[in-house]
Every structure is written in structure tokens, then in C-alpha cells.
Amino acid sequence: MQPTKTLVLAAAIASLAISGAAADWPEKPVTIIVPWSAGGSTDQVTRVIAGELTEALGQEFVVVNQPGASGSIGTKSALDADKDGYTWAAGAAQDLGSYGVLGMLETAIEDWNLFLDVANVSVVGVNADLPYEDMSQLIDAMKASPGQITVATAGISSAGHNAIEQIKNATGIEYKHVTYDGGNPAVIATVSGETQVTTQLAAEQAEMIRGGKIRPLAVLSDTALELDGFGTIPPITNWLADYKAVPNYFGIWTPKGVPDAVIAKMTEAWNSSIANSEKLKSYAAGRGAQFTPFAGEEAQARVMPAIQAFSWLMFDAGKAATSPDELGIPRP
């Protein structure tokens, strides 16, 4: 009994000490781990966030890139770090929620305090020299020559692959999957004509769409996308009425167990500074992303559909290590 008591006491003192310190959080620079390389879409938006938080909370927010293994290495660092609010991770909630299913990391979305910033949608874009003018022509062409039309994505488990797989499930088309190191290289391959179609994020295609090198056929959403400097991209539901759109939310997060005072302070900063950040708003508009400054329960509810869709997609493809059911992710 005695050792247990001592332990409990020690833990109590420790948590007191932490919460005492937490009241003054942040007292020293805060690290946000971006588990992807510098310059990518997660990195970009996180640096905007870091800048805004630095101003709002009066302490430096430092972005550290820890790329590798689809973001699981950097995420694990944040998971293993002291739960004191000084280490955060950034990324796409869909990835965070599916590491467990893919057997890459033992964690679930409920283990994290989520602070979302933007949501990215996928766009079906074709090389501008190709004759397809709308989505139905492309679907017809894919049906006419199954497995011949090349689709560039950032790899298995990427947003682009997720998107084309869902179109495949809805229409029964066959395509040739060509994978690249990231969203931008996939888009470039479509511009250069190495591949015919790309289904990567709007943010990654924005410049090429504006420049007339890629023709956007549809946005994988139930509402149209307004892209600054281009115009309107019609929603996929115009052609596939029962297509379930699942936006891919990006944000920063820290594991549960961090003192409540930290979360309260961050929530306050999120609702006041981030939600009103002009820089973030114009960044989102320019990259064809939705501005979604949500935190807490609302964030958890919003990210779930994408995690469900993706986890089950991977499970059905035989790529899951654990059934999503066992991890409490119901089939959508």
C-alpha cells in the first residue's frame, strides 16, 4: 500500500506543479512539429498559424520539420513528449485518425486536442491539352478504356488517391494509378503530360488552374469551389448525386493529458485571434481552401467522416493492420 500511496501523492504534487506552471503558459518558446518536409501544404499553413499564435500569445511558436513515414514519426514525437503544452504536432486529421488502423502508430483521434485551421478539398483536374471538358466525358473515357487513363496522386493513402478511389467506387471505372512524392509533383506530372488526370488538393493545383495548364472538371464536394483568379469549379454531385463529400481538415494538436489551462488558453486564442486572422483567411482563399477555425468537440465531430471513409477504404483494400471497427471507427 505504502508505495502506491507515495506514488499517488507524487503524481498529485507533480500535476499540481504542472498546472501551476500551466497557468502561465506559454513561458518559453512552443514547438509545433510538422511531420512533413518544409514547404509542403501542411508546412505552409502551419507557419501562418505559428506566426499568428506568436503574436496572440506573446511567445515564439517554432515550427520544426520532422518528416518521414507518412507523418507518423513527427506525430509520435509529439505523442511521446512531456504533456506540458510546449510540444504540438500539425497535419491532416485524416492521417492522424488512421495511423492506428494502418498499424503505424498506436493512437486514435480521441487521444488528441484538435485545433483545426483549414479544410482542403480535392479537385479532378486534367491536362489542358486533353479534350475532356466536363466530368461526364472523363468518366465515359475511363469506362471506354478501363485501366488506361493515368491518374497522378501523392501516393496510396493520400487525399488524391482517396478521391479517385471514391469516384471508382461510385462509378465502377478503372484507372492507372501513378504515384508521386507529394501533391505538387503529381500536379506537375499532369501539367507536363506524363499523366492525364490528377485528383490532388485544390491548394496544390491552384496556380496551374489559374495559369490554364490544368482544366478543373469537378471539386469533390457538395458545393462549388470559388477559386480566386479563376472562377467556379462545379461540385462532383452535379454528376454523381449520392457522392459523399468528406473535407480533409488540417490543424494543430496536442495529446490529451496536457493541462486544462493550456487548452483553455489555446481555445481562447483560437476563437479570438485565429478565427479573425486576415492572413489566414487570404491564405485560404488564395489556395482554394476553406477557412475552418474549429476546436474542441466541434473539431472532433467534423474530422470523423474523413477518418471513417479513409479507414474503411484502406481496410477494404487489404491495407489495414487493424479493423476500424475494433478502434471504434464505424463504417460510414
Partner: peptide, 9 residues
């Protein structure tokens, strides 16, 4: 082999 992936990948 059982997952119908492109054998060149």
C-alpha cells in the same frame, strides 16, 4: 499479389 496492385510497383 492478392491486392491487384500493379506488379511494377
Amino acid at each position: 499479389e492478392n491486392l491487384q496492385v500493379n506488379p511494377y510497383t
